[in-house]
Design a protein around this nucleic acid. Structure first.
Length: 559
RNA sequence: GCCCCGGUAGCUCAGUGGAUAGAGCGACCGCCUCCUAAGCGGUAGGUCACAGGUUCGAUUCCUGUUCGGGGCGCCA
């Protein structure tokens, strides 16, 4: 409906501006009104043009309204307040949408903005040194939802998980497991200084000593069971913890297409190649025995060491090498979903990529950072520390509040906001979770369909579409107006990389449906009206299902 | 000292360059002989952190202040 109004306004605008020498604005704001007395949509176009035209806003509005071509979609146009133009839409414009939704089904709301281009979403990317915690859960929920939004808008999406299986952290993991193999407890003599103290390390050791075989999504290892073989322990521990993470992610219904190993960047010479290319670029210098990159030339506040004086590389080199590889794989669009504590890497990675001068655009890759998740339990904050072992894992959360609710909670807030996850609240108020409110709306439609069959009535699609003009109640038109917002909402959420918009929208849509359901009886005697209302209910169910699917939340038939 | 994010109802959080600022939870009052009451309707509750600026108009944009969180290493 909005595109039609925009087109009408463009035509009117051309006519009004003709001969004035004033250029038409690039965008025209047409927004759904908050107050129904202001019509269905409103534009402030006249207010924004008044100055350039040297006329009072209301005068400009009058000229625009006079120039508007007639349209079957618009039933009334009013000029209000300082110069707003309010559009009242014809009920048929709303009613026709119900048929469109039923025709398009799962396709309704999708668009082809991505035109089949390749995009990568890298997310979670946790090192295999412990189970996934709530912060990873937020990353998983947001990242997966971003991927789904991009897919819904025509992108070909690769979900990628990057991790380190060979660095210092992994070495620390190995000696921690080894200590546990030997029966050493944290704090005792022989416990490694920065060892991982969590109980799960004991489980890894037990499994290793038992000679178990573990199978993760990207690797399989049989334990050597020898406590003196540190290499074997390392390999086993990585596989074991990767498998644990896979189980967490599976429970969360998140899958990855590619697992990318930091170690492969070294093994395949990509890190060395990147160093050479950076040196060749002329943006490096030697100082104090180390090799530096002049990142200050690319917006950083200080230059960064690439190769330490002792010869090893700093962490950001493999990061740059990794992103060169992403670029070379043809991902002209890459979105990295990370915790906000990594924000300082953004400038450095981009600086490294710019220094290489290989045609990578300045703002590439894109980043979506999520703020910290604070976990409350028993009215107290639970500190998340792998080393201390006090821990709220993603799986705990899924077990306690369910996958759907966990996903919804973690994605329903702007990534920029810190998130307080109160476990007791989420547990005790399971029935009051917003996700159930949305799912219930979906299940209610399914229930109506069951009742329909029980009463020996039939649903007739053609009759429903033919009788849509019977949908005239305020609750019906309000519901359709919500449904009408969906395609634009998907486009906006995808464009702005904001999954929470979908979560918010679905709650509003569910509210509109519950309002309709309480006001109007669907299964009435009048077959025409019944089919029209069934059409509306089914269209709502379709949009709820489409939207819930974007969040990775299930749409139950029965609750 | 510098960088990033936030400060909106008792709590958790949406939202917006415009016309009376919203939801959920919590509180209070109503609604099932009727398609699942996991629902609906209503009441109470706000100087949109503070101060300047831009604007016809700012809670929204800019600057400063302040409070809270995170980050600033030849750690990753």
């Amino acid at each position: 409906m909005k595109p039609q109004l925009l087109s009408l306004l463009r035509q009117a605008l051309d006519q009004v501006l003709a001969g004035t020498g004033v250029a038409a604005p690039d965008t025209i704001a047409v927004d759904a009104t908050k107050d129904s007395r202001h019509g269905d949509f409103a534009t402030n176009l006249a207010l924004t043009l008044a100055k350039a035209l040297g006329k009072p806003p209301r005068k400009v509005a009058e000229e625009l309204v006079r120039a508007l071509p007639p349209s079957p979609v618009v039933s009334k146009v009013e000029i209000a307040g300082p110069g707003f133009i309010n559009f009242f839409l014809a009920p048929t414009a709303f009613q026709a949408l119900v048929a469109e939704i039923l025709d398009r089904g799962v396709e309704f709301g999708r668009n082809n903005a991505g035109a089949g281009r390749k995009a990568m979403v890298e997310f979670v990317s946790a090192n295999p040194t412990g189970p996934l915690h709530v912060g990873h859960g937020r990353g998983a929920a947001v990242g997966d939802c971003l991927a789904r939004l991009l897919q819904a808008t025509g992108w070909e999406v690769c979900r990628e998980f990057y991790y380190n299986d060979a660095g210092a952290q992994i070495g620390n993991l190995a000696i921690s497991v080894q200590a546990r193999c030997r029966g050493v407890e944290p704090g005792q003599h022989g416990w490694p200084e920065d060892g991982y103290r969590g109980e799960y390390i004991k489980d890894v050791a037990k499994s290793y000593l038992a000679g178990e075989k573990v199978h993760a999504d990207d690797r399989e290892v049989t334990a050597a069971a020898d406590p003196d073989n540190l290499d074997a322990i390392r390999e086993f521990a990585v596989a074991y913890l990767r498998r644990e993470q896979d189980l967490d992610l599976k429970a969360f219904a998140v899958h990855f297409d590619v697992y990318y190993l930091e170690s492969s960047l070294y093994r395949e010479g990509k890190v060395e190649q990147t160093v050479q290319d950076l040196v060749k670029s002329g943006h490096t210098f030697e100082q104090d025995g180390a090799l530096w990159l002049r990142t200050t030339g690319f917006g950083d506040d200080k230059d960064r060491v690439m190769r330490k004086s002792e010869g090893g590389y700093t962490y950001f080199l493999p990061d740059v090498a990794y992103h060169v590889n992403k670029w070379q794989r043809g991902f002209t669009r890459v979105i990295n979903e990370q915790g906000a504590d990594h924000h300082s890497t953004i400038t450095r990675v981009r600086a490294g990529l710019q220094a290489l001068g290989i045609g990578i655009p300045q703002g590439w890759p894109e980043y979506v950072l999520h703020q910290m998740v604070t976990v409350m339990r028993g009215g107290e904050e639970v500190k998340i520390s792998k080393r201390a072992g006090s821990y709220v894992t993603l799986r705990d959360l899924i077990d306690e509040v369910g996958r759907d609710a966990t996903r919804y909670f973690l994605v329903a807030r702007k990534s920029d906001s810190q998130l307080v996850f109160d476990i007791d609240l989420a547990r005790s108020q399971t029935n009051d979770n917003p996700v159930y409110y949305i799912q219930y709306a979906h299940a209610r439609v399914a229930s109506v369909m069951r009742q329909l069959a029980e009463r020996g009535m039939e649903w007739d699609l053609a009759a429903g579409k033919a009788a849509l003009e019977k949908l005239t109640d305020a609750s019906e038109l309000a519901l359709i107006a919500q449904l009408a917002r969906y395609p634009e909402l998907v486009a906006d959420a995808a464009e702005q990389l904001e999954p929470h918009q979908v979560a918010q929208y679905l709650r509003e849509l569910a509210a509109a449906f519950h309002g309709f359901y309480n006001t109007q009886q669907v299964l009435v005697e009048d077959a025409g009206l019944r089919n029209a209302r069934l059409a509306l209910a089914l269209a709502t169910q379709q949009v709820l299902r489409n939207g819930l699917d974007l969040l990775g939340v299930s749409a139950p038939e029965k609750m």
